[in-house]
């Protein structure tokens, strides 16, 4: 994906329990957990690994 485009990975902040498992599997260093706030950078390639590891299903790659 070109940088500056809209990233299609979304986090449901009402579900996220800010555990950081998604950050640990992200191959592109695109996620950062700032206390209770998950930041998604433009480096995200929408590979979806984080959505599968999320224990509560808070992450989704929108089609």
């Amino acid at each position: 994906m070109l940088k500056g485009c809209v990233v299609l990975l979304t986090v449901n902040r009402y579900k996220c329990c800010y555990c950081g498992a998604c950050v640990g599997v992200c191959p592109s260093l695109a996620l950062e957990l700032v206390e209770t706030w998950l930041e998604i950078s433009a480096d995200c390639t929408e590979c979806g690994l984080c959505t599968r590891i999320c224990p509560v299903g808070a992450l989704e790659v929108k089609a």
């Binding site: 555990c19 950081g20 498992a21 950050v23 640990g24 599997v25 992200c26 191959p27 260093l29 996620l31 950062e32 957990l33 690994l49 599968r52 590891i53």
Partner: peptide, 18 residues
């Protein structure tokens, strides 16, 4: 911790496979 960045900044690949 699990979301470690320090190693990756230093060139150590700590990204976990599923």
């Amino acid at each position: 911790g699990v979301e470690s960045k320090v190693g990756r900044w230093a060139g150590i690949d700590t990204a976990l496979k599923l």
